[in-house]
Nucleic acid binder design. Structure first.
Lengths: 79, 79
DNA sequence: TTGTGACTTACAGTCCGTC
DNA sequence: CGACGGACTGTAAGTCACA
């Protein structure tokens, strides 16, 4: 696929998105439906392959009913 | 020119960026230099006209020495 | 249900300026 | 110093057929 790869923030977003989506028990497809972003695009985000814009970050957050910043907040130990 | 202008998140970022940059007493130009983003582009971000990617959000955050999520976090008191 | 490569088009992002 | 414009280049956006 070779979609660009830099950026640690992408990885954080990727894991957060995947985790939160799982918590809400949504499939990529239903989420895609909710925020009107293509399913395969969401797939790409969750694998850290897509460098999305903050407009799309906002759409995802709204669909998931979380604040946008929660999607890029590092979560591990919560430091 | 027709720069797009949707997205409440952009406004939050705009004010946060402007505030933090001011706190660090950096000009748009020196910040541009620090994170290697074009000065006119930073100007556009601070006016909420630009829909930047999270890779660039990260670069801005790094240059300002803050966490990326702090740039898009809404503070009580602004809108 | 999700991953992937390939593709076109819209705009992200740069560089030259003026005021 | 910052707002704003014109003209460009590179890549995110968005979709598809198939695995």
């Amino acid at each position: 696929m070779k979609r660009t790869h830099p950026g640690a923030l992408r990885e954080i977003l990727a894991t957060n998105l995947r985790r939160i989506r799982a918590e809400k028990e949504l499939s990529q497809e239903t989420l895609a439906d909710l925020c009107k972003i293509d399913r395969t695009y969401i797939s790409g985000i969750e694998r850290g392959l897509r460098n999305l814009s903050i407009d799309n970050l906002e759409r995802l957050a709204t669909a998931l009913r979380v604040e946008p910043w929660q999607l890029i907040r590092r979560r591990d130990g919560d430091r």
